[in-house]
Amino acid sequence: MITLQNQQLTIQINELGAQLHSIKRLDNQIEYLWQGDPASWKRQAPILFPFVGRLKNDQYSYAGKTYHQTQHGFARDRQFNVIEQTPTMVIMEQHDDDKTLQVFPFSFNLQVKYELQNNKLAVSYRVINPSADKTLIYAIGAHPGFNMPLTKAGVFNRTKLSVWPAEEYSRVLLEGPYNDLEHPQLIDMKEARMLDHDDFNHDAIIFKTDGGHFTAKLTDTVVNHGVTVDTFDTEYVGIWSQYPATAPFVCVEPWWGIADNINADGTLLHKQGMHRLAPAEEDNYKFSIEPF
């Protein structure tokens, strides 16, 4: 387990999946990050790569071959290696090998950087295409879960969600695990809304953010503590909690990609939300978490 600390925050990160394990403020010692529970959702903050969401039949085709891939890709279940570390920052990476090439026929180098910046945790992903001649096709996203409520005194339906810009958004609906981008609904976020488990009866609330700066704030209104997640250049941001079985957490998920469409034909070159990275190029993605 890797620990980062400054005068305001202490963060723990698991080298398996480079997954956040703990987020605490030193002044209140509240655990903001969901601690995982095999009875509900065992994960805490997985990195989604090289896919976001589910593929139809958990498979896709590329260059005449069919590949099997489970929801959200494989990065979350693989070891990351530390390549640089200070008391307040760590950079970790994983890259392709014989095992990944069996399910994803591309070379890649995926780096994640966690850095404490005063009262914020800045998270950035760097995707590098080391190939000399092949375009890398991928999606990437984050899936951090936060304890809601934050203390035993709280209750889930006293969780307030507010967003910035505070306006109407196009909400992407899901049919099962697949997106129905062609039939969005408007969701009015001019005012904050109190969450209830039933809000997730059709899975995640997905905001279509179209590459803008989007902020989601979760507040446990019983204790007036919570988290602010700032996202940058995202295509979508998902808000999710488990349903119909319920648990006391809410995820705020910056996505640069999306699950298969309900009409997807399974061909990787046709898949929505995929990024194309030319040989020897790189791309960068970022968001931040501020517990308060």
Rank of each mutant, 00 (worst) to 15 (best):
L181R: 08
D196W: 10
N179R: 04
D198V: 15
P177M: 06
L186C: 00
V163A: 06
M189R: 00
G176M: 09
L173P: 02
Y169V: 09
H197N: 09
I187D: 02
I187E: 00
K190C: 05
V163T: 10
Q185N: 06
D198P: 00
D199S: 09
L195F: 05
L173V: 15
E182H: 12
P165V: 12
E175G: 07
E168M: 14
S162K: 11
E168Q: 13
L181H: 07
P184D: 05
W164S: 11
W164L: 15
K160A: 11
G176Y: 12
L174M: 15
L174V: 04
L173T: 12
V172S: 02
L173I: 13
D188R: 08
E182G: 14
G176C: 06
A166V: 04
D199W: 07
I187F: 00
F200K: 09
Y178I: 07
Y178N: 06
E191W: 02
L186Y: 01
L186H: 01
A192T: 03
A192N: 04
E191P: 00
E191T: 14
H202K: 09
S170C: 08
D196R: 10
S170N: 08
A192Q: 00
D180I: 07
R171W: 04
R171Q: 14
E167L: 07
S162W: 13
K190F: 05
H183L: 09
E191S: 10
H202V: 12
A192E: 09
D198H: 12
G176L: 06
K160V: 15
N179Q: 10
S170W: 03
L173Y: 06
D180F: 08
R171I: 11
Y169K: 06
E168P: 01
L174Q: 05
E167Q: 11
M194D: 06
I187H: 00
M194C: 04
D196E: 10
Y178F: 15
D198M: 09
V163Q: 04
P177L: 10
P177A: 02
H183T: 06
